[in-house]
Simulated assay, not measured.
Amino acid sequence: MSKIKKSVYGFLRGSFLTDESAFKNWRIIIFIVGLLLIMISSSHKADIKVIKISELNKLKRELRAEYVDTGTILMRMKMESSVRKKAKDRGLMPSKTPPKKIKVTYKND
């Protein structure tokens, strides 16, 4: 067998883990596995944060729509025509005479 075939065959059999320099190989493998675990954990945490941000954006849109609806209802309630109608329902009528200005004078003693 050629040298390349022996190398590939030895790699597939896992001889790099069992020969005399295996300790150095195991340290590298354990280090790489540790890095992979950290990377997987980090990606899961990032996914959770993305989902949370999406939920908060949805809630923000709902609250903004509610705010706009409430503002519209308030503006309609403050309109003069609706105030007159509610006053009329309660038996209040607009004054037939315009209001007069009251002047207060003080006497200097």
Rank of each mutant, 00 (worst) to 15 (best):
M77K: 14
L37P: 04
L56A: 06
P94K: 08
K45N: 01
I40K: 12
E55M: 04
K52E: 10
S43L: 12
K52Y: 06
K45V: 07
R64Y: 07
M93Q: 10
S41T: 12
K60S: 12
I32G: 05
I40S: 10
R76P: 00
L56R: 14
M79S: 15
L36A: 14
K78P: 01
S81K: 14
M93L: 12
L35H: 00
L37W: 04
S42D: 05
L59F: 04
I73P: 01
R61C: 10
K86H: 08
K96S: 09
I73A: 14
H44K: 11
L63G: 02
I73F: 06
K58F: 03
V68F: 05
L63H: 08
M77A: 13
D69Q: 10
P94N: 05
D89W: 02
T70H: 12
P94V: 05
M39G: 13
K86P: 01
E62N: 03
S54G: 07
E55P: 00
V33H: 04
M79K: 14
K88G: 02
M75G: 04
I29D: 01
K52T: 11
S43W: 00
I38E: 05
L92S: 08
A46M: 11
H44C: 10
I30W: 05
H44E: 12
L56W: 00
D69P: 01
L59C: 08
M39A: 15
I38R: 03
I53P: 02
I38F: 05
S43R: 14
R64V: 12
G71P: 00
R84P: 00
R61Q: 04
K49L: 13
L35N: 08
R90W: 02
L63Q: 15
D69C: 02
K60H: 05
L36F: 10
K45P: 01
R76V: 07
R76Y: 06
K96Q: 08
K45F: 10
F31P: 02
V68T: 11
I40L: 08
R64N: 07
A87G: 00
S42E: 09
S41H: 06
K86M: 09
K85W: 01
L92C: 01
R64M: 13
E62G: 02
E55F: 07
S82Q: 15
M77C: 03
K60C: 03
M77T: 14
V33Q: 01
G91A: 04
S81P: 00
V50M: 08
I30N: 11
A87Q: 12
S41F: 04
K58A: 13
M79N: 14
V83N: 06
A46H: 06
